[in-house]
Design a protein around this nucleic acid. Structure first.
Lengths: 193, 193, 193, 193
DNA sequence: TTTT
DNA sequence: TTTT
């Protein structure tokens, strides 16, 4: 409900491998993805250098399902979340720590294969999920025949219920909308400058 | 529910004046605040320069109420939101545009007056709301005798209902919490470094 | 040099039209771009709604040149900058205000046309600049035959000199690099998890 | 010079202990700080819960010096940086990983002790550095008698020279300033709303 | 270790 | 209008 301080991470990068999705006893999905960001620079000898940073990210519930459905190795994504370091024990019983980004917002940044009409199914190089599947395998995702590029937001435990299988419940977050008595704001079809 | 693109603003600044809170017909609160950020630099002649930027911000529902209750002129705040430009007409019937930050998260950054025990009475210079009030005037805010520093998050239309007077309903956002079957993460009592 | 407060904007969106680049007397480039972000939601009647927000952005110097060279209408970009409201006078001598994002970091998010081999030349739909040019017409940009996807960072006055034509000077910002006596960090070729 | 992707962290939190500052052979300062953020929520049984997250942060050069000089245990700061995971070996020769935030911007969020006149001397509870020192012990910091609240930005390798002791050189980053032929922007004395 |  |  509240928080003291701000703990925010923003990433744009590419998946190092396909998402790993698993389900908890209560039916909630959890997905792990690893995302690479990189920077390059010239060192003091003028040599071009590059360094890749790998980020371990975890997504829950609806976000996990979307990730599992639509992302694959190489996909470019925008992620927003918070840092969390968890403790675990290695085989020797030693305490270890792993820092992860708990994602609460995701945007896919690859242009959709098959977008824009025609262009047809399959993929392979588009980094979108399930490209090899038969065209009829759809439906579960709820994104329709021509699946909309899903852009997902998932606050903290946003889908409400723990203990219930993830379902397409109404999101707790809708845009803060122009109420009748606010000034008009219709920008839908023209650019104001 | 969804969004294409990212539209995010992060501000830390000081209120130029007390918040203006009003209520919509449906009972929802709306608050307007103006926040200053400033930067200083040396120009090419070596003169110290400073420029203040004023940001017009709008808060809705619970956030508006908290702002009205706890913020006042001079208060330092962290704000997160999105940009929104709305069109209006001036007296000559000319189209005008105003860009505002629609706030969906807020953190007060002033230390509470009277926090920590002792440290003296009243406020007046602490930039917290209602400092001149009699000590007994509490209660309405629901923050208890020793009101907790409120840190508030308000997604898009987060408090659920339009058309209902704002009430302290459960937030749509709770921390994404360690469920029983997730990896252990208990940092409560020891530190990883 | 310093700033009191934080004034930060993060956008991911698409250009509404080609960048407009002009040059100042001192030779510095200035580019204006308009970027759309949009969100969609279901209203209370269950109707799908969408709202597009248009952001007026301004880029200076090297960033302006890169924008002019590589971006075009429809291109998807990541932008980071700060809000700035400037005053101007309309024809009636009335004070008007326009809020812009002064961009200091930019990332192009479209996959390069012609990247990865095959996929072929031409453009038109790739949203990258100068797509109709002959393949040999390159060179000015300094991005080579197979131009690297430019990712640019431009702090405040980053290219150092005012008063000089923008040149590919060394950036004032290089990655904060592992100095000899810091712990080794070579992640270049393996994923650590 | 460039980067592919975005790797950004934004924190507001409190220092768990005084900064640890050390110097590299080339004279550059490095500071380590640990910063706490926390969130609280009600669990499913209605119990108030709280979780504190600890962030390991590293600052270089001028930022490190400022941190060492002005921050102390308990201080509240705004930090911006990037995630970096470095590999090291434990005593058993095992590979270990530690994730840190490499800070490139910092803002102190505590109000200065002794600011505003009167308000009394010394510190101890103000979380500003060196509070127990004799008033004359100043000078090294270059912030004057009444030290300005330092707000610091330090890009990547921002202070220019490696291999030289950090000195108050001109920052590579000045505000992107209104040049003569840009639209007027003088907000110094009037407010747009 | 912090803070409320 | 704020803040330092």
């Amino acid at each position: 409900m509240a928080s003291r301080g701000v703990n925010k991470v923003i990433l744009i990068g590419n998946l190092g491998q396909d998402p790993e999705v698993r389900y908890m006893p209560n039916g909630n999905a959890v997905a792990n993805i690893t995302v690479a960001t990189s920077e390059s620079w010239k060192d003091q000898q003028g040599q071009q250098q590059e360094r890749t940073e790998w980020h371990r990210c975890v997504l829950y519930r609806r976000l996990a399902e979307i990730a599992g459905e639509y992302l694959k190795k190489g996909a470019k994504v925008y992620l927003e979340g918070r840092l969390q370091t968890r403790e675990w024990q290695d085989q020797q019983g030693q305490k270890r720590y792993t820092t992860e980004i708990v994602v609460n917002e995701m945007q896919m940044l690859d242009s959709r294969p098959g977008a824009g009409g025609g262009q047809a199914q399959q993929g392979g190089q588009g980094n979108w999920g399930r490209p090899q599947q038969a065209p009829a395998a759809q439906g579960q995702g709820g994104y329709g025949q021509q699946p909309q590029q899903p852009a997902a937001q998932g606050g903290y435990g946003q889908q409400g219920g723990y203990g219930a299988p993830a379902a397409p419940k109404p999101q707790g977050q809708q845009p803060q909308q122009p109420s009748y008595n606010e000034p008009p704001m219709d920008f839908d079809d023209d650019i104001p400058f």
